[in-house]
Write a protein that binds this DNA or RNA. Structure first.
Lengths: 164, 164
DNA sequence: CAGTTTTTCCCATGATATCCCATAAGAACC
DNA sequence: GGTTCTTATGGGATATCATGGGAAAAACTG
């Protein structure tokens, strides 16, 4: 159950989108034919994962009847209450609720981005914007680190016997 | 028996509301065709669950804490005594008593919010307000509680800055 | 006990989701 | 390079769901 790479699929007039076949294959281990989708806390996109993933989270939050913990309960409501359990249709598509489409700014296409145990669903524009930002960030970070990183390993003698 | 997602349904002039079909399906395991509804202690909303859940809660409160703990006993009495056992009509609706409608400030629409083993019933306005508040809190709470800790390190966005 | 109100059941309807099939586009395979 | 299989996408038919209204049944009241 591991998602990688990204795929762009169309959202049809009825709000249906095909979940990439690769992802569906990964999802096949799951007992439930569908995914759970919810709004990301940090990014303007949706997050999706196997039902089991959320169930485990739910268990941790409400397991013991110690459901009498304000903070846990609030968190459970915020996460679980905003998550949708979306079954696949016979073609492997899901029907995204209006509220989720709006949240992510998804109109007629969606980008599925695998990030390990779950995947993100973006509007193409937002995804591109985010990706570019991250690249720029990575570039400058690399440049900064690279200046140091390149010298040290190449001139072991200059660093005088640190090495392995 | 697991509730997630949220659905908004209308309350008609007679005080009837459809329980979301998804919830009814989850409830189908229950022997009793209806739900138990009571006022939440901490939130301005109603809580609902399968009959069995309340029974278990009842057992737990009385056995674990015995007759010693006045506070728990009071809690049990408050919950069990004020709970309504609401049957479905043939269309899968329930008839919410006036007192509950008033408590939750529900007028002509109700939001059903699944949170694991039970679900909440809110007035649309109150739910939206609460949800927005919690979303903000959830971010930090998630990190602190470690509820999402398992995923956090794996999230690119968790490490990178905010993309929004 | 009759009049009156409330509750329960049943049916009608529009909206929505689900299923099923058809086609196209692409990838994998010979 | 051509063929075959998988995947994505679209549309139409069908079933399900939410919702409203009305009639029958029960409860309540004077």
């Amino acid at each position: 159950m591991r998602f990688i790479a990204n795929y762009t699929n169309k959202v049809d007039r009825k709000g249906r989108v095909s979940v990439p076949a690769r992802f569906r294959t990964a999802l096949a281990e799951s007992a439930w034919p569908g995914i759970v989708v919810y709004e990301s806390f940090k990014l303007p996109c949706l997050e999706a994962s196997a039902r089991e993933y959320i169930d485990a989270l739910s268990d941790r939050l409400t397991s013991d009847f110690g459901a009498f913990d304000d903070e846990k309960e609030a968190l459970a409501a915020a996460i679980l209450g905003a998550a949708f359990d979306l079954p696949f249709d016979s073609e492997g598509r899901i029907l995204l609720p209006q509220s989720l489409l709006e949240f992510a700014g998804i109109d007629d296409a969606a980008v599925f981005v695998g990030v390990g145990e779950k995947f993100l669903i973006w509007s193409p524009e937002a995804w591109e914007r985010y990706r570019d930002e991250q690249r720029a960030r990575a570039r400058s970070a690399a440049a900064r680190l690279g200046a140091l990183g390149r010298q040290a390993p190449r001139h072991p003698e200059a660093a005088a016997g640190d090495g392995a």
